[in-house]
Design a binder for these strands. Structure first.
Lengths: 188, 188
DNA sequence: CACATATGATACACTATGTCTCATCTAAGT
DNA sequence: ACTTAGATGAGACATAGTGTATCATATGTG
């Protein structure tokens, strides 16, 4: 729908849902509260989303638009990787981390949520894998490097610290992680 | 309470809650359904846990009793680490993974859940860190190895694949992960 | 301006929550 | 065996949220 009225109410409600999610978690996102918080009639909330999961999915999709800029090509591979990981860490530090926490639990039992989550989260790793694959082609990384696993090994610790430990993802940590993980695979 | 009647109903209800969580996620664990599923009066469920989070917390505590056996001392460090990681992966593959998924979202907004989750999840990494620290002391790992980060780098990818990608944690993957991550830090 | 569509307001039946009361059952001590 | 404290069962009650439906009103578009 391109109807501006629809877009307006939709955005109003989605903003309210975002506040509710951020403040009280997924359970706080109810049709009633979204209606109250956004000043929209309850029936309208149902017209846009029939279930709570649909609201959260939409929220997730909107949050997925955090675009990680591909790094400039004239830096050394380690700097480019570090740049991507720092942008990734920044996304996890922001509201994206909270949304992600909420979604992981839902995705376990709702395939639709899982697919949406996959689309959101595969974006960072994909850039990283491409970067690493290019590094192998260019001879910056040793031949035979398992690019997929290397990407897991760079990203996994970030998720671990953010989602499970609730630790800050400082740039220092990210830099050391990139450095120590990449080092054995760098040529020269 | 040591009252056997209390223990009996408590266990009945927890088992029911476990089934509900496993089948339908955290949202499916309601006082009413736990009562129905366990054949206990609804009021009794409230008497044991006043909120849903309390039920899930108890479930989490019970699940936390998965004890990872410390590996036998006469293996090479890489084999011992691989053993710990495989036990860890097995725990994530089982119901523990589902419970964990559910808890991550709750822990984001409920400090009590977070603390319980921390107690449950720190167990594996602690064994691993101790193993790695011993490796440094024994000279099997190079001096100056960042043991905490090395543990993150070994565990992070497992969580990433299980919680976000819903991938199987095969022993092959775990072995390769341990091998490629440890290799640069091994002396010999 | 007229029409289509979205929204607001309200009603209804239903599920779940959280608290309360009182009768009944169970466990433990005498 | 008797008694008593504590736990449970059964049910009532007010409240929050769900999901659907209806109809008047407001908004956007041709």
């Amino acid at each position: 729908m391109t109807n501006p009225q629809v877009q307006r109410t939709h955005e109003l409600m989605l903003n309210a849902a975002g506040s509710l999610l951020s403040a009280g978690g997924p359970e706080a996102v109810t049709h009633l509260r979204v209606a109250e918080e956004s000043g929209v009639a309850r029936a309208t909330v149902y017209r846009h989303w029939s279930t709570r999961a649909d609201i959260l999915l939409d929220l997730l999709r909107r949050g997925a638009n955090l675009s990680l800029d591909p790094p400039s090509g004239d830096l050394a591979l380690e700097e480019r990787v570090t740049g991507v990981l720092e942008a990734f860490a920044a996304a996890l530090r922001s509201e994206g981390g909270r949304t992600l926490s909420a979604m992981i639990g839902l995705a376990e039992w709702d395939e639709e949520v899982f697919n949406a989550l996959e689309r959101m989260t595969e974006f960072g790793p994909r850039i990283l894998r491409r970067l690493l694959a290019a590094g192998v082609d260019d001879g910056e990384l040793v031949q035979g490097t398992d690019v997929d696993m290397l990407a897991d090994r760079l990203i996994g610790p970030l998720y671990l610290r953010r989602l499970l430990y609730h630790d800050d993802l400082t740039d220092g940590y990210v830099g050391r992680l990139a450095s120590v993980t990449l080092a054995p695979h760098l040529v020269s």
